[in-house]
Simulated scan of single mutants.
Amino acid sequence: MKRAFIAFLLTVASMVTVSAQTTEISDVVLQNSVDEAGTKLQLNGAGVRSKYFLSLYVGSLYLAEKSSDANKVLYSNKMKMIQLDIISSLITAEKMEETVRAGFKNSLGDKLPTLQSEIDSFIAVFGEEIEVGDIFKFVTSGKELKAYKNGKLLTTVEGEEFQKALFGIWLGNKPADKKLKSLMLGK
């Protein structure tokens, strides 16, 4: 009886430990910390991107040091990552490209032409069909941005201004989704 009770306690303790290491949002399990190129990043916040009452993807922000200040995040040269977990079959490569281009326009305003070649290079990330369960990661070290799909490196784009513009799609003054911005900033 005593051994059964100890086994039960160990089982409960291991479940609590596992759940403390992850966060679940809309059936997507996110790691509370990840290692990117030798840097430990913590889940700062996450939420669901919705449009017209439809859930499209889970967007999450990982930072070396947690912050609720969008400008601090955007202008920091410390490693950071945005992860998009696709949860809707309504997202297609064409729609994602269109949405990201609109996001860059909102993020950059009249400065858009100065980064057009970098944007065009980056948009190739959405060249293949997108399916439910696909995971996009945009990781920046302050000097370059690496874009991954399902763990495969698709492109690297140089330049701080491009990185700020990309992260500005979700964290800028005209974010894709104000509620998601707030959730990503842990508010």
Rank of each mutant, 00 (worst) to 15 (best):
L185P: 01
Q163L: 09
L183Q: 12
S68R: 05
E65T: 13
N71G: 09
T11S: 14
N71R: 13
S67C: 04
F104M: 00
V132C: 05
L154W: 13
Q42Y: 11
A46F: 07
L41P: 03
D110H: 12
E129L: 11
S117Q: 13
F104N: 01
G159V: 02
S88R: 08
N150F: 05
N44C: 03
R3D: 14
G142T: 01
D177Q: 07
M1I: 10
Q163F: 11
V139Y: 09
D134R: 02
L84R: 01
G45P: 02
L185G: 00
V29I: 09
L54G: 10
K78C: 03
R3M: 14
K178N: 15
G133D: 00
N150H: 09
T114S: 14
E36H: 07
K72I: 13
K137L: 03
L145N: 06
T156S: 12
L54E: 14
F138H: 08
I86A: 07
S26C: 04
I123C: 05
N150C: 08
M79W: 09
Q21G: 12
D27A: 12
V139D: 06
A7C: 06
K164E: 15
K146N: 15
G38H: 01
L30A: 00
I91V: 09
N44A: 03
K72L: 14
G109L: 04
A70K: 03
V16N: 10
V28K: 02
M81G: 07
E118I: 03
K174H: 15
K95C: 06
L74K: 01
A93R: 07
A64F: 10
V28H: 01
L10C: 14
Q42T: 06
V29T: 11
L56S: 05
D134P: 03
